[in-house]
Simulated scan of single mutants.
Amino acid sequence: MADARTPGWSRRAVLAGVGAAPLMGFAPGREAVKGDGSLKDHAGRAGMQYGAAVRASLLAEQPDYRAAVTRECNIVTPELELKWAWLEPQRGQLSFTSADAIASFAAATGKAMHGAALLWHLSIAPWAAEALADQPDWMIVRRFLASVIPRYGEVTHTWDVINEPMDMGHRMDGLRPSPYLAAFGPDYIRRALEDARLYAPRAKLFINEFGLDYDFPVERDKRYLLLKLLEGLKTSGAPIDGLGMQAHLELAKQAHFDPKVLAQFFDDVGSLGLEIRISELDVKEANGTLATAERDARVADAVRRYLDVAMANRAVGSITTWGLSDRCSWLDSPGGKAGPNRGLPLDAALRPKPMYHAISEAYALRGG
């Protein structure tokens, strides 16, 4: 355990003691743009990034998984390890062991680490939620941000400061009821961004959101109100640099995918001068009883159609999938005898699937 005074994570310190995390042939800070055709290579040739959500336990325990992430990614996102409930389950007792392990891996293999996610209603430490309900004190939030953000400043250049702030059906502005909204009102978003900028003056700061991909009434409303939120933040001078589009695609909803609608939203966000990250791309299958080849073709088609729209907009700067392999997807099996959900680039044996090639083809649209 470590308290908030724990010295910050340092790339130099990690590399000095990296015996447990060999360099694997990568030079920190140097990005290859030619090579064996990995997703990282295709992204580099397009002047972009490819990343995946990772878990510290898998990097430590599964050498083939670690090698696949090393080969394919130039940015990694901790799936759980940077979230408040994980870092500080007891007040004042912060444990950075798992997050530091991912930062060490990133430094040793020449990658960046994306910071996800600082304030999220589902990952607030229970003690913090109780404290904010009893006495709204911004210093509780500020101490957390001050403890985490500077620690990873050398390896983390992008942060999801606010995760999933929108939920339709509660308020006219579309904001989600949460401990933060209850304690501080809508201004909690601006305050968090301003504190994040204070502790990470050169990083890019994002709001990350899901449910923006299809032409349903609820998603149309969400896009409209999220755009209003972003416009208001920009007008007020809040330090917001971009939007994370989670892109959790669902095959059961594909009939409601409208490229023109999505393209317009990308245009609207880009017109505010904001960068767009495809931040958590994966595909939830609808039918696990089909032949594997058909399942993979349907997944790849959904990804291809989405990324055709995304890559046509220069505001889109990176693609991250929420996991790299079906072996460790958060998505449940769609049922049937054909195994787990197949909505990530590599199968459970870490072999490329048609979705993998759909992503590499998308980078080719930008010259990758």
Rank of each mutant, 00 (worst) to 15 (best):
S104L: 01
G153S: 03
C73M: 06
T70H: 08
S57D: 07
P136Y: 06
F96C: 03
A60H: 09
R55D: 02
R55Y: 04
W120F: 11
S95F: 06
L132R: 14
A125H: 13
P78Y: 02
A131F: 13
R55P: 00
L122Y: 11
A129H: 08
Q49G: 01
G110A: 05
Y65G: 05
A131H: 06
P89K: 15
A106Q: 04
A46W: 03
A85C: 13
A131W: 12
E79H: 01
P136H: 14
R143T: 09
A112N: 04
Q49E: 02
G47H: 06
M139G: 04
A67S: 12
W84F: 10
D64Y: 03
A112E: 10
E61W: 00
T97E: 12
R71T: 11
K83S: 11
H114C: 00
L59N: 03
M139Y: 08
W138E: 12
Q90P: 03
D100G: 08
L87G: 13
D137G: 11
T77E: 06
Q62A: 07
A108F: 03
R143P: 02
M139N: 10
E72L: 07
L82W: 01
A103Y: 01
L122R: 15
R151N: 03
L119W: 10
F105N: 01
E81V: 05
D100R: 09
L59M: 03
R91N: 03
A52I: 08
K111T: 06
P150K: 02
S98A: 14
V148A: 05
G47L: 09
F96T: 13
T97K: 11
A129N: 12
I124S: 13
I75S: 08
R151I: 00
T109S: 08
L132C: 11
A85Y: 06
M113V: 09
V69S: 05
Q90H: 14
A99G: 05
R151P: 03
F105D: 05
L132N: 12
I149Q: 04
R143Y: 05
A53C: 08
M113H: 01
R45M: 12
A52K: 10
G51N: 03
Q93H: 15
L122H: 14
N74S: 14
G115I: 11
G92A: 07
Q93C: 14
A53D: 07
L87Y: 13
S123M: 10
E72G: 08
A56G: 02
S147C: 11
T97C: 00
A103N: 04
D64T: 07
M48A: 09
S95E: 02
Y65A: 09
S98R: 06
A146W: 02
A116S: 11
L82I: 06
A117H: 12
P136S: 13
A131G: 10
A52S: 13
E72I: 09
P63G: 01
S147R: 13
N74P: 09
A128Y: 14
A99C: 06
A46D: 05
A46H: 01
A117S: 14
E61V: 02
L94S: 13
